[in-house]
Simulated scan of single mutants.
Amino acid sequence: MKAPVAAAVVHRDGKILITRRAPGQKLAGMWEFPGGKLEHGETPQDCITRELREELGVESVAGEILTSSIYTYPGGTIELIAVSVVLQSIQFVLQVHDLIEWVRPHELLQYDLAPADVPIAEEIIRTYG
């Protein structure tokens, strides 16, 4: 059974938003596209809007699904669904992350990304260079 998880792909000025998991969190110190698990009956778009509000304190508009990846962690298998997102503000209030970065697509793989996020980064690089 795969747990569906939504991840935000946010573009701004030719850069992509990534966030680093704070100490004490699962995958602490690793970078990811922000997001979280879908709740029952939620679409990936509904989920990502809620998660960005909860985790980063920002309102957003979720668009199309870009790609997805399946990855098995020791605790179980997830399907990471990448959703194109436009932020309404960038006044971030970090809850489960300790850093945010705006990076050019071709620089994404220079970061220590969570394993499930790597195929999404590769797809972003293929799509946006």
Rank of each mutant, 00 (worst) to 15 (best):
V9F: 02
P23S: 04
A28K: 10
V5R: 12
G24L: 14
R21V: 00
A28S: 09
A7I: 08
V5W: 10
L17Y: 07
A22R: 10
L17K: 14
H11A: 06
A3F: 05
L27P: 00
M30K: 12
M1I: 12
M1Y: 08
A8V: 12
K2T: 10
G14E: 09
R21L: 02
R12K: 15
K2C: 04
P23R: 06
K15G: 01
L27S: 02
A22Q: 03
A22L: 06
T19H: 00
I18S: 05
D13C: 13
R21N: 07
I16L: 10
T19D: 00
T19S: 08
G29Q: 08
I18C: 02
V10F: 13
W31P: 05
I16Y: 04
P4N: 14
K2H: 09
I18V: 10
V10Y: 11
A3I: 15
W31I: 07
R12T: 06
G14Q: 10
A3M: 15
K15E: 07
T19N: 05
V5H: 10
T19Q: 03
M1H: 14
A28H: 04
L17F: 03
L17P: 10
P23A: 06
A3K: 15
H11T: 02
R21H: 08
L17Q: 08
I16E: 05
P23W: 05
A8C: 11
L27H: 12
W31M: 03
P4L: 14
P23K: 12
L17W: 12
V10C: 14
D13L: 13
Q25I: 02
D13N: 14
V9E: 00
A3C: 11
T19K: 04
L27V: 00
G14A: 05
T19E: 01
A7E: 03
A6W: 02
H11S: 06
R20Q: 11
D13G: 12
A3S: 15
M30P: 01
A7D: 06
W31E: 01
V9K: 05
W31D: 02
D13T: 07
I18G: 00
V10E: 05
I16Q: 04
D13W: 09
K26T: 03
M1K: 15
D13H: 13
P23I: 05
Q25L: 00
K26I: 06
A6I: 11
V9L: 08
A8G: 08
G14M: 12
M30A: 01
A8M: 12
